[in-house]
């Protein structure tokens, strides 16, 4: 496997993420000062990730496995820049399309047409690009007849169709997928899988979190196994997956 620097697209260096586990949130000044006076402002520290280092090369399909709460989603959020790590360095070369939760950028009061432009802007695309891609997006989602309906009247499957179409229309260099392949009906799911495969062939780097080990085995070439915020194992898909299944 080529690990020369120019092909490196994501690298995490000794990344740790700590959260404050103060049982309640301090949302008011009064509480804050009372706690400050009582010297109760020292929170319990929760370590979500500890000294994680790994590299992803261009064109990799990188899988992350692990039990609930092992830090998979935190890792994805750190890579996509949503969370800043407490310690360590993250470097990402290239544009990211996060499919962390479909439809995050939607305003359900607006129509689908308006939301497509809004969501495109959320992902950092210019209006010009969105205008060019608009027809493709609509065609892929098959929602032509509902374009001018406010999205609050959509079913969740319909929302997901639009969201997936927008997120994957402008080909990103890195695609982050967090358990969303169960979108819509089986026909659309097949379409989604096909699109992701197309992207893989086109050289897009994919980071995939899934609980379905079959899916990981089928798609990925490298896998990282997280356990309680630490890397238990990282390497080729076969050795990690078989170790994970036997654990």
């Amino acid at each position: 496997m080529n690990t020369s620097d120019e092909k490196m697209i994501v690298s995490l260096d000794n990344v740790s993420m700590h959260f404050n586990m103060s049982g309640e949130k301090l949302d008011s000044l009064k509480e804050y000062f009372i706690k400050l006076l009582k010297r109760q402002l020292f929170f319990k520290k929760y370590v979500a990730l500890e000294n994680i280092s790994f590299k992803i090369c261009k064109g990799d399909v990188f899988g992350i496995v692990g039990l609930n709460g092992s830090g998979k989603s935190t890792t994805l959020k750190i890579i996509s820049g949503i969370l800043k790590p407490t310690k360590g360095k993250v470097s990402v070369q290239g544009t990211i399309a996060p499919l962390i939760e479909l439809g995050a950028g939607f305003d359900l009061e607006l129509t689908a047409r308006e939301n497509i432009y809004l969501n495109g802007a959320v992902l950092g695309h210019s209006k010009k690009i969105m205008r060019e891609k608009f027809d493709d997006i609509v065609e892929f989602s098959e929602m032509q007849n509902f374009l001018d309906v406010p999205m609050k009247n959509y079913s969740s499957g319909m929302v997901a169709r639009i969201a997936f179409s927008v997120a994957t229309m402008v080909r990103p260099e890195i695609l982050i997928v967090d358990e969303i392949l169960a979108v819509g009906d089986f026909q659309f799911q097949e379409k989604c899988n096909k699109r992701i495969e197309e992207m893989m062939e086109g050289g897009t780097t994919i980071i995939l979190v899934s609980h379905s080990i079959e899916q990981i085995e089928a798609l990925c070439n490298k896998v990282m196994w997280l356990e309680k915020g630490k890397i238990r194992m990282i390497g080729g898909v076969d050795e990690v997956c078989s170790a994970y299944k036997n654990s």
Partner: peptide, 20 residues
């Protein structure tokens, strides 16, 4: 600069929703 389109879209959204 990358997020100027978002600025415009969000402003447009506010107008649409305010007077819808």
């Amino acid at each position: 600069v990358r997020f100027i389109p978002l600025l415009i879209e969000l402003t447009a959204r506010d107008f649409k929703l305010k007077y819808r």
